[in-house]
Design a binder for these strands. Structure first.
Ligand code: MN
Ligand code: MN
Ligand code: ZN
Ligand code: ZN
Lengths: 138, 138
DNA sequence: TCCAAATCTGTAATCATTACAAAATTATAA
DNA sequence: TTATAATTTTGTAATGATTACAGATTTGGA
């Protein structure tokens, strides 16, 4: 678990982002929670400790983080964008309980630098179905 | 090129969808065009020949088609949903020209019925970067 | 401490998607 | 064919996530 604020500050500085307190707390939230939150979910969670924050700042900084490669934007849910503080894995979306589950599994395509001549910079692997728990429950 | 209306009618009936004229034309559009259109793009294209259609009907029937497995919903573009009349391939999105390109390439994960115990019903593979043409052009 | 630049907030606008009721179409039976 | 009920389609309004923007605040350096 990465909680040390100084360490998070360094993550931001490493990609040339000025480490304001809001940004540190936002990145801390993304690195600690594994819940693939929406912008609003992050806003509501951080609001408890930082009552003056705005949803706009959350969105703006999430976009900044994504642009700098600090977080991953997930388009898994057609209703709203979700964010992930960890990169490099596939995702599973359960049609019963709506949970998003990490799939750290090897894939022969994601190592490729080019596919059919197209330069690959990033990738998303989404899987849909019924999760292990929901299968058991009925 | 699949253009025969009778053949498209049979595709609809095969999945228990009543083959109204609008639905036949909508599926015809999706099967003929390879442009991964948005709902609005389809609406504007079909409107030229069917002036009375509504955007609501396009959306409703696209959702119906997707539910019956006739078309694929692409969550590639954060701004809007795109639709694909063909299934079973990965997609590439060029950050320069915004083109969506099919990637009919083998992947060792998509054949799996289960991953970590989760039942797989469908999957999406997205790749992002710079397409072949845009690399050459600069 | 003072100042300019960057960031943040609060509110309003945007716009894809959905909800809903009325009109039109379709299928079925008399 | 005609009547009737069910389904589909239309037109409009509502929803809600995301974005735009201007003013307030914070930040870092002189
Ligand atoms: Mn994840
Ligand atoms: Mn395709
Ligand atoms: Zn589940
Ligand atoms: Zn391109």
């Amino acid at each position: 678990m990465i909680t040390d604020l100084e360490k998070i500050k360094k993550y931001l500085q490493a990609v040339k982002i000025k480490p304001t307190y809001l940004r540190i707390r936002l990145l801390k939230y993304l690195l600690e929670k594994k819940n693939h939150p929406t912008g609003k979910m992050i806003y509501q969670a951080l609001k408890k400790e930082l009552p003056t924050i705005s949803l706009t700042s959350i969105y703006n900084n999430l976009e900044l983080f994504a642009k700098k490669g600090l977080v991953k934007i997930l388009l898994l849910d057609p209703k709203e964008i979700r964010f992930d503080g960890e990169k490099g894995h596939h995702h599973f979306f359960c049609e019963k309980c709506q949970k998003i589950i990490d799939l750290p599994i090897d894939c022969n395509l994601i190592k490729k630098k080019k596919i059919f001549g197209h330069l690959i910079k990033d990738w998303d692997g989404y899987f849909f179905g019924i999760c292990k728990d929901c299968q058991r429950d009925g």
